[in-house]
Amino acid sequence: MTNVTLPPLAEGVDKASISFWYKQPGEAVKTGEDLVELVTDKATFNMPSPANGKIKELLVGEGDSAKVGQTIAVIE
């Protein structure tokens, strides 16, 4: 089981918005594959999956924001 957490993207920027999930619960995902699109004031980021497996749960919805270090998805 892997908890996918929001990485530190920039100094003084402690949160980001989830703008798009590339995968949905139940879908298979490989390490390095696009997982989620994140938006901060300065840029849009594409975050790849840190692990192989299947999406168990997406904990933050599109349009919502998350804090750095917060778990945003679980891969099993």
Binding site: P7, P8, L9, S17, S19, F20, E37, L38, V39, A43, T44, F45, N46, M47, P48, P50, G63
Partner: peptide, 23 residues
């Protein structure tokens, strides 16, 4: 909600070296 153009999407690379560098 995302007003940045498509080409301005930065791919995040986070690996052990990232945390090592910061540390």
């Amino acid at each position: 909600m995302n007003s940045l153009p498509q080409w301005l999407k930065k791919r995040i690379t986070i690996n052990e070296a990232f945390f090592d560098t910061r540390k």
